[in-house]
Design a protein around this nucleic acid. Structure first.
Length: 445
RNA sequence: GUGGCCAUAGCUCAAUGGCAGAGCGUCUGACUGUGGAUCAGAAGGUUGCGGGUUCGACACCCGUUGGCCACCCCA
C-alpha cells in the first residue's frame, strides 16, 4: 500500500462542511435575491484569466498577490482572478453591444496570496454588483441604496457606509502641495485616521518626511467633521478637481435623501481611502460599528477601467460585499433565523425490519413527491440506532412503520424535538407532516 | 512580505528531561417497538513533520509546515 499522505488543504483555503454551507446559502441567497430586486443580472466568467488581463490594474502591491495558474504545456499565461471587477470590464469590452446601462452581479470565488488570518482567506467569495454605462450619480445612489437594503435585510442595524471621492483626494494632494510620488503614503496615513487618531496621522506623516507646512494643512482638513461638505468646499474650493468631487457628493446626498436612507447609515468622510488604483470618482466602504469588525463592503466608481481594454472609456460604478466577513459577523452574533436547520432533511423514514423495507421505501418516495425532504434509513434492524442517527443530524421528524402501524395502514410520526408521537394514516402523512414543518419565509424585501 | 505566540486522542486540555493521561465525544453491551438519562466495557497516539543534544525528549536546540495575533494590505 502506498504511504498515507496527510489530508490537508492549501494554506489559507478551507472546506466548508454541510452545516456551515446551509448558513452560507441562506446569506448568499438573500444577497442574490436583493441584487435581482434591483434589476441586476447574473454573470459568470472563468476563474482563470489571461495574466495580461489582470496585470496593471490593481497597483503593484496588490499584483504581488495574484496567483499564477500555469499548465505545464500551456501556451497562454494564466492567472487566478483577483477580483470580479476586472473580469467585468473585460466582458464589457468584449461585448460592446450589451445594452447600457449594463447591470450585472456575480457571486464567485477569487484568490489572493495574502497571509491568512481569521476571516481572511486566500480563496474567498466576492459578491459584486456593478452598473456599467452611466455616469449619473443616480447610479451611485442606487449602489449605496442597495448596500443599505441588503445589510438591513440581513439583520444589521448599526452600520455606516462611508463615502468619499477620489477627486477630493486628488484635490487634497494639490491642497497639500505634495508631489505625486508622495500621495500614496499620504492617503494611507489618512485612511488610518479612525484607527490611530489625528495625532497618529500627524506622527506618521512626519515620519514619512512630509513637509511641516503640508502636514499643517492636512491636519486642518481632517479636523473638519464628517458630512460637512460645505466646510470642505471652503478649504478645497480653489481646486477644480475637488470642486467636481464635492459637486458629485452633493448630488449623491440629495438622491440618498430622496431614497429615505436613514441619515445614520451613510456618512461623507474625507479620510476614507480605498486601496485599489482604478477608482476615479465616489468611493464607498461600509463599516459595522457594533461590534467593531472592519469593513463589510467596498466599492466605488471606476470610469476609466474599461478604457484599458477598449478605445472608449465607459463610466462604471459598483460595490463588492465581503461575504466571508459578513458571514463571520453573522455567525458571531447568531443573526440567522431559527428556521435554518442543521440539515436539509426534514424527516427520516425508518425501517422497522427487513420485511417492511418496501413499505418504508414507498412512504419515503411519496413524501418526496409531496415536496418534503425525506431520508430513507439504510438500517433494517435496530430502530434505536436509526433514531440516534436522526438525533445526531438534528433531523426534526422520524416516521416509524412497524407491523402494528402497517396492518392498520398507518405510521407513527415522531417529533424528535419534543418526543411527541402520533399515529397517522399513511395516506394523510405528507399533508400532516407538511403542516408541522416551518413554512418558507415570505419572498419580500 | 516583516515580527511574535502556538501545535499532545475526533474536540477542550494535562503530563520536574524518566511508563502519554483526563473530561467530553465515538463505538459495543445492559434495557427494547424509540434518540437524549443511567450503568458496564472498548476503541482511539510515530506528541504536526525532519534533524540535533542526551543513557533517556511531549519537554531542550535548529529547521520546516500549518494555525492564530500585530504590521503591510485588504473583503
Amino acid at each position: 500500500m502506498a504511504p498515507k499522505i496527510q489530508p490537508r488543504v492549501p494554506r489559507g483555503m478551507r472546506d466548508i462542511l454541510p452545516q456551515k454551507m446551509l448558513l452560507r446559502q441562506y446569506v448568499i441567497g438573500l444577497v442574490e435575491k436583493t441584487f435581482q430586486r434591483f434589476g441586476f443580472e447574473p454573470l459568470q466568467t472563468p476563474v482563470l484569466e489571461l495574466r495580461e488581463t489582470l496585470m496593471g490594474k490593481y497597483g503593484a502591491d496588490a499584483e504581488k498577490l495574484i496567483y499564477d495558474a500555469q499548465h505545464r504545456e500551456g501556451k497562454e499565461e494564466l492567472s487566478l482572478r483577483y477580483d470580479l471587477t476586472v473580469p467585468l470590464t473585460r466582458v464589457v469590452a468584449m461585448y460592446p453591444d450589451l445594452p447600457k446601462p449594463f447591470k450585472r452581479y456575480q457571486i464567485a470565488p477569487v484568490w489572493r496570496a495574502e497571509r491568512p488570518q481569521k476571516g481572511r482567506y486566500r480563496e474567498f467569495y466576492q459578491c459584486d454588483a456593478d452598473i456599467v454605462g452611466s455616469k449619473s450619480m443616480l447610479a451611485d445612489a442606487e449602489i449605496v441604496t442597495m448596500i443599505y437594503t441588503l445589510l438591513a435585510q440581513l439583520g444589521f442595524r448599526s452600520f455606516t457606509t462611508k463615502i468619499n471621492n477620489r477627486k477630493i483626494l486628488t484635490g487634497i494632494g494639490q491642497y497639500a502641495g505634495l508631489p505625486p510620488a508622495e500621495l500614496g503614503g499620504l492617503y494611507r496615513s489618512l485612511d488610518k485616521l479612525d484607527k490611530i487618531g489625528a495625532d497618529g496621522v500627524r506622527a506618521e506623516m512626519t515620519q514619512n518626511q512630509i513637509p511641516a507646512e503640508a502636514i499643517e494643512r492636512i491636519m486642518k482638513l481632517i479636523a473638519v467633521p464628517t458630512d460637512a461638505l460645505g466646510e470642505l468646499r471652503e478649504l478645497l474650493g480653489e481646486f477644480p478637481v475637488a470642486r467636481e468631487g464635492l459637486d458629485e457628493l452633493e448630488q449623491l446626498a440629495t438622491f440618498l435623501s430622496d431614497a429615505n436612507i436613514p441619515r445614520t447609515n451613510f456618512q461623507f468622510d474625507v479620510a476614507m481611502v480605498r486601496g485599489l488604483a482604478y477608482y476615479t470618482g465616489p468611493i464607498y466602504e461600509t463599516v459595522v460599528t457594533e461590534p467593531r469588525i472592519g469593513s463589510l463592503t467596498g466599492g466605488g466608481r471606476y470610469d476609466d477601467l474599461v478604457g484599458l481594454f477598449a478605445n472608449q472609456s465607459i463610466p462604471t460604478t459598483g460595490t463588492s460585499f465581503g461575504i466571508e466577513r459578513i458571514i463571520d459577523v453573522m455567525d458571531e452574533l447568531a443573526m440567522y433565523p431559527a428556521s435554518i436547520g442543521k440539515t436539509v432533511t426534514q424527516v427520516l423514514v425508518t425501517i422497522f425490519q427487513r420485511e417492511l423495507a418496501g413499505v418504508s421505501i414507498q412512504i419515503a418516495n411519496r413524501l418526496r413527491a409531496a415536496g418534503i425532504n425525506a431520508e430513507l434509513s439504510f438500517e433494517t434492524e435496530n430502530l434505536g440506532k436509526q433514531l440516534k442517527y436522526a438525533a445526531a443530524k438534528s433531523i426534526p421528524f422520524a416516521v416509524i412503520i412497524g407491523p402494528d402501524e402497517n396492518s392498520a395502514r398507518q405510521v407513527t410520526l415522531r417529533d424528535l424535538t419534543s418526543g411527541e408521537q402520533t399515529r397517522i394514516d399513511q395516506a394523510e402523512l405528507a399533508k400532516a407532516l407538511a403542516a408541522k414543518l416551518p413554512s418558507e419565509p415570505p419572498d419580500s424585501i
